[in-house]
Amino acid sequence: MRLKSFELIARDINDVDVSLLHALSIGVGWPHRPKDWDFLRRAGHGIVAVDGIGRVFGSAMWFPHGDDFATVGLVITSPRTQAQGNARWLMEQVFERCAGRNLSLNSTDAAYKLYLSLGFTKEAIVYQYQGDVAPTLPMLPPLNGELSEPSREELDEITALDARAFGVDRGKLLALLSENASICVLQRGGELVGYSMCREFGRGQVVGPIVASNDRDAIHLTAVHLKRLAGQFARVDTRDTGAFAEFLQQCRLAVSETDTTMSKGRRFLNRKDNEPLVYGLAGHALS
């Protein structure tokens, strides 16, 4: 693609030094550290827009799950090229490489009109709750079940439960997340009914994914981690606007910004009665 006086080409994201990716995200105010980029490159695929001397002007990533679905994220364009069609060109490259897949993403306000023009439709709002966790958490509702750390053998059960909530198997991603995450599971009557993960990301810790059958379970699965993070910076991305969201506010996490969950192809969010729900996202790009 030619942008005024210089030409950009697409390169595999793994062929670019991570320091250039970090500089790109810092340039638009995103919190990703070099190690966050390294993790994302392990979890998915991506391209970068570079000029003839190797300068990076944009990125886009996709994370395949199953045979016909992928989430899209890390679509970043440098301020210099934001108004010159760079983001549209990057998305066209993603479409070419994800041909035949249904797609979902979480759009910033700035990119919303672009994604609408590319055929994405709005499904829900994501609220980014973040801040320094309160030194004392609010009173919790009665616990129905037992909370514990899972054994390695229980990761298959977590993956199966997550697939019911997310809509497609994302076992590869969960296995990667589990390498450096603290994990809590909720069992009731000997059955796994919920789980949560917490890991380092950006400025502090992100709690997610969080999968549960109701607000009460989701609150307990989140509180386990927030108790440990009292006074530290934490983030939870959620589409919930009920009791779970109120709990996050009581923990002194405030909405910093909102994103819009959008899909292209098959509708992404299809909650079913008596099925678990994704209360906390794994990440903006990972959903």
Rank of each mutant, 00 (worst) to 15 (best):
R2C: 01
F6N: 00
L8W: 15
L21M: 11
L24D: 03
V28G: 04
V28F: 12
V28H: 12
P31C: 08
H32C: 12
H32N: 03
W37G: 07
F39G: 02
F39N: 11
L40S: 00
R41V: 03
H45W: 04
F57P: 06
A60K: 02
D67N: 13
A70C: 15
V72Q: 01
L74C: 13
S78P: 07
P79M: 08
Q82T: 14
Q82A: 09
N86F: 05
N86L: 06
R88G: 01
W89R: 08
L90P: 11
M91G: 00
R101G: 02
N106E: 15
A110P: 01
K113V: 00
L114V: 00
L118F: 09
T121Y: 03
Y127S: 07
V133H: 03
A134T: 10
T136W: 02
L137I: 12
L137P: 07
P141C: 09
L143V: 07
N144F: 04
E146F: 14
L155Y: 15
I158W: 04
T159I: 14
D162H: 13
R164V: 13
R164T: 14
A165P: 11
G171T: 04
N180G: 06
N180T: 13
S182G: 13
I183R: 11
I183Q: 09
G189I: 15
E191M: 13
V193W: 05
Y195T: 07
G204M: 12
V206M: 12
V207Q: 02
N214K: 00
D215Q: 15
D217W: 05
H220D: 07
V224L: 08
L226A: 05
G231D: 05
A234M: 09
D237P: 06
D237V: 03
A243S: 11
R252Q: 14
A254M: 11
V255F: 12
D259H: 13
T260R: 14
S263C: 11
K264V: 05
L269E: 13
R271E: 01
Y279L: 06
G280C: 11
G283I: 10
S287Q: 13
